[in-house]
Amino acid sequence: MDDKTAFAWLLGAGVFVVILGIIAYLVVMVLALIIPTWRICNRAGYSGAMSLLHLIPGVGTLIVFAILAFGTWPAGEATARPPQPGAR
């Protein structure tokens, strides 16, 4: 096996490992995070597809949490308060 062939094999194996890693990452994300978050988003009144933001590395989870924490839930919240005078 000459150097070129060895390099091609190494490159192919590296790409394979990377793809396998990405697939494993996606499977873990879907099973562990996206399914429950999908349901939480639905129950809050948002589209379940919002949970796909988890797939953004680093800040995806933060974004989903922020929307759920600071957005007004379309399906209603348990924290109903009388509107302030003049407030809409």
Partner: peptide, 14 residues
Amino acid sequence: LTTWMSWRIMVKAG
């Protein structure tokens, strides 16, 4: 940050 957000989400869920 995420703990603060979790707190708010819990309150919104009741």
